[in-house]
Design a protein around this nucleic acid. Structure first.
Length: 289
DNA sequence: AGGTTGACCTGGACGC
DNA sequence: TGCGTCCAGGTCAACC
């Protein structure tokens, strides 16, 4: 489910519910779980930590943690990538634990943060940001461990000029470039298709061949599509979205995504589907040039 | 190096 | 009812 607007919705929902709470214990499944950090490391980092803030970076939910251990204290970040089917739920302990739950963090008020992911494409990771972990650079300066800044540029923070620069030299279809998380992070299949439709650009056009004007239109389209989707709580395509199980409503605004054969809202031409970079891609052959 | 493809998983929808 | 096939919002590693 989760692209930028869905992850933003989830992060806000979780933040509202757990900010300031202390994690008292952590359970992880026994099988090889979809973790990027070793399970013991995750348990060690989370146990006893206080949740300062939950926010989004790209498609990652980032949970800022601190712990008063020793004189200087400890700080770190818990990164959650939801893959395609991941959920981050805040539940009361008497609510049945769903199938495919891979980790549970129990809070000091008894509630639990549960990481559930049937398809196991999601990933959990912890970063140790303690000043004591600073490493010496070549010139002898101390280098602070870095907070997570994601894999690319933030779509809702990038300027139109920087956006243009990002795609200028890419010899790949613009749709594929939009999905490349090392350029922009956070855009996935739904919002790539929807923003290209809104900008009137064919997904197969090569990024490097787009005009300044077209890239400007794409930047604007992306801003409006993502902003509107966040306002509607994201898109619930097959399963749910928010931390409380509430669905989003942006799927009602989809103009091309999963609408193959249906008439274009603007011109009535049937929406077409093609496969680009292994991903299904939807567009209006008349409105998108 | 940049670009493309297939593998990784499970479950739901659909056809026979 | 049941089985097989195809498809799904995302990354990665491995290839060209």
């Amino acid at each position: 489910m989760p692209e930028l607007p869905e992850v933003e919705t989830i992060a806000r929902g979780v933040d509202e519910r757990v900010r300031g709470r202390r994690i008292v214990s952590v359970w992880t499944g026994s099988k090889p779980e979809p973790f990027k950090s070793a399970p013991e490391k995750i348990v060690e980092a989370l146990t006893g930590s206080v949740i300062q803030k939950v926010h989004r970076v790209g498609k990652h939910v980032v949970i800022d943690l601190t712990r008063a251990a020793g004189a200087e204290g400890w700080q770190g970040q818990w990164l959650v990538h939801l893959g395609m089917t991941g959920r981050l739920l805040v539940s009361h302990p008497d609510v049945a634990v769903p199938l495919h739950t891979h980790a549970i963090a129990q809070l000091d008020d008894g509630r639990e943060i549960r990481f559930v992911d049937p398809r196991r494409f999601g990933r959990l990771q912890v970063l140790d940001l303690s000043p004591s972990r600073a490493s010496k650079k070549r010139d002898g300066e101390l280098e602070e461990p870095k907070r997570f800044t994601g894999t690319g540029q933030e779509p809702l923070a990038i300027s139109p000029e920087a956006f243009r620069e990002l795609f200028r030299s890419r010899r790949t279809p613009i749709k594929s470039a939009l999905l490349n998380q090392s350029l922009l992070h956070g855009v996935g299949n739904i919002y790539a298709d929807e923003s290209l439709y809104r900008a009137g650009i064919r997904p197969r056009r090569h990024a490097a061949r787009l005009t300044v004007r077209e890239l400007g239109a794409l930047w604007s389209a992306l801003q409006s599509v993502l902003t509107e989707a966040i306002a509607l709580g994201g898109s619930s395509v097959s399963d749910y979205v928010g931390a409380d199980g509430a669905k989003g409503f942006f799927q009602l605004e989809h103009k091309v995504y999963m609408r193959t054969g249906q008439p274009c809202a603007r011109c009535g031409t049937p929406i077409r589907r093609l496969v680009l970079g292994g991903r299904s891609t939807h567009y209006c052959p008349k409105c998108q040039r």
